[in-house]
Amino acid sequence: MTSAARILLVDDEVPIQRAVAPLLRSRGYEVEVAGTGQDALKIVAAHPPDLIVLDLGLPDIEGTEVCRRVRESSSLPIIILSARGREADKVAALDLGADDYVTKPFGPEELLARIRVWLRRILSEARVESGRVAIADLIIDYDRRRVLRGSEEIRLTPKEFELLAFMARNPDRVMTHRAILKAVWGPNAVDQPEHLWVLVAQLRKKIEVDPAVPRYLISEPWVGYRLATEIPSGTE
C-alpha cells in the first residue's frame, strides 16, 4: 500500500467525530466521517475504505446491521466502538463479522494500536492454510500437526491443536466463545462454554510461559479469546 490508509469513522456523536478524526489524520491516515449507518454503507459501496471504526449506537440502523451488510460484500477490517455493559451487542457484532472492539471511553493509544494491527494484517493477508505459521516464537506446523517453540516440540492433544490452529488462522482477532465452540466442537456445542474453559486452561499450561499471566491466548472478558501475535515487551 503506497498511499495513506483510508479509515471510515462511523459515529453519530459530533464531539467524538471532532476529537477522533484529527487524531487519526495526525497519524497520517486519510479519514472519512459518517454520522449514520446509511451514510456509512453508501461510502463503503462507492469507495471502500481500508478499515472501518464503527459505533454500535447509531441513530438510523443498528451498528450490528451495518456490520452484517458490509460483510456481505467485503472483508475489510471493522473495529467496533461499544459501551461497557453492552457485551451482548459486542458479541453479536463480532459474530456478524466485526474483527475487534474498543470499549468507550477509550484512550487514543488503545484505538490507534488496534488500527495499526488491523492495517498491518491486510498488508500480509496472503496466508496459507497449510504449511507453517509463526505466532511470535511459536511455530505451528499444520502439515505435521505439531507446535514448536524454537526447536523444542510442545505436545498437544488433537483438540488442543485444533483450538490453537483455529486461533492462529485468525490471529489478533477476537473470536467469540460461540465461534470457537462451533469451530472446534461443532454446532451442537455452542451452548457448552465449559468445554472451552477447560481446553483453554490445558492449552495455556503447555504454550504459555506463565499460564497465570497468558501472553498468547488472551481472554476478552464476556466475549471470547484472542491469539496475540505480538508479545508485549514490558510497556505498551
Binding site: P15, R18, A19, L23, S26, P105, F106, G107, E109
Partner: peptide, 9 residues
C-alpha cells in the same frame, strides 16, 4: 471519550 481523546490531542 471525547474529553479523553481531545485532551490527549
Amino acid at each position: 471519550t471525547a474529553i479523553r481523546v481531545a485532551a490527549s490531542n
